[in-house]
Design a protein around this nucleic acid. Structure first.
Lengths: 239, 239
DNA sequence: AAACCAGTGTTGTATGATAACCATGTAAGT
DNA sequence: ACTTACATGGTTATCATACAACACTGGTTT
């Protein structure tokens, strides 16, 4: 059975392909809330897979709250999607403007988070941030270890806000952003950039240590601005 | 009159039970990151279900990023959970400080979103916001319709940013916040409050129409401040 | 010692069958 | 006329089995 779907190589599981395909139908409005999906048998034949695979895809979509199903009736598109879960489509992020939007959202959270952190940080928060910074200094610029500790530093800043959801959301968004950066692979390597980045981090740390919210906000904003250009984001937003 | 019998007697699917059971094992540390899960066959026999059901449960957990599996090797507990999906525990939100944290996060997104909207809104964005405001005027304060259009207004503001993720995140967070408010049920009813709330909305709308970002930010901040007190949030944050 | 190779276990997929359930129509009973 | 019971077809939920693809292991050969 040669599957002649879109050559989406993401995830070698057929159920993943089927799930994202149905999900796309919903997102693009070809399947509206309340609509009944084709029967599992029909889906199986149209996708050229077994009914079992379709069921795994359905189970996934159901757990994401996108559809609901009832025995003897069928499967239907849920009225309010994302009822309990928030997901970000990996493939959609490959488009530049989508990535830029997510980066912007991350920026808002980071910048305001830094300001909050400046007002609330404890001494243990501070030492955690320092630790992350020193380990980042040891790692070579652009390496996996470097990126990891970079994210760790930002996470410690978020943690200093004392707002657990801030940590959760920021981690989630940053993770998606990092994935896209790694996938696109346009990461310049240079020791100069390492020093610049570390300096920006240091400035954030200093501001938070001094409990200066505005300065922290500004430092974070500048850091993200620098990070955007380093990654090759146009950033032609008017202000 | 048919009374509301056990509506959920219709047991959740077996795959859901299996999935949550495995999920609990992970959450409670009996299955640590990196650990290999029992084989599908073993899980099937221990749970007393078919291997097919186990596979649907696995598919679900895999989509949630909790586990990963490889053909010929087995399934393993993922190092970092919540890789692709973001969830918010409904139970945890019942605690006041958790709710307050989520409200704070929502505030950041709303306030900065309003500022962005002021810089980017189109005329159609503006008319959508006006429509939401007029329908809200017609609904009685505190009614379901009122809450719905209230959320709709905020969604139109988010849409005016042109950032789809802003809409997605804000909708998700606001939905959780609204659920908690409805559950707690401490919603005072008063015509005065309706007028006040509508006035706040109007001010936001005017600022966005005039493309004044700072004013929009301030108006939204004040609106949320008012909404917080109306819901009975202490809000003793220092600034 | 390194490369090859067969065997075994596991996941991924396909296929068929059965039970539970829903919706609808029709006949029987009141 | 109205309700109840039954029959029928369609759908999901679940089970069972079989095969293909892949990973790992250990022995054999080179």
């Amino acid at each position: 059975m040669a599957l002649k779907l879109d050559k989406v190589n993401r995830g070698p599981h057929l159920s993943t392909l089927v799930a994202s395909s149905i999900s796309r139908e919903i997102a693009q409005g070809r399947l509206k809330p309340g609509d009944q999906l084709p029967t599992e048998q029909q889906l199986a034949t149209t996708f050229g897979v077994s009914r079992n695979v379709v069921r795994e895809a359905i189970a996934r979509l159901r757990s994401e709250g996108r559809i609901w199903s009832q025995q003897g009736r069928g499967a239907f598109v849920a009225d309010q999607p994302n009822a309990t879960v928030l997901t970000i489509d990996y493939e959609a992020l490959q488009q530049a403007n989508a990535f830029q939007s997510l980066f912007e959202l991350r920026g808002i959270l980071e910048v305001e988070g830094a300001a909050l952190a400046a007002g609330r940080r404890t001494d243990s928060d501070l030492s955690a941030m320092r630790d992350a910074l020193t380990t980042m200094q040891a790692a070579p610029y652009g390496s996996v270890m470097w990126l990891k500790t970079d994210l760790e530093f930002h996470k410690t800043v978020a943690a200093a806000t004392g707002n657990p959801y801030m940590v959760q959301f920021l981690t989630f968004v940053s993770e998606r952003v990092r994935e896209s950066i790694l996938a696109s692979g346009n990461q310049q390597r240079s020791e100069d950039l390492a020093a610049v980045t570390l300096g920006e981090h240091q400035r954030i740390l200093d501001a938070i240590e001094a409990r200066q919210a505005d300065e922290a906000r500004d430092a974070m904003r500048q850091h993200l601005h620098g990070a955007a250009s380093r990654v090759g984001l146009a950033e032609e937003q008017s202000e």
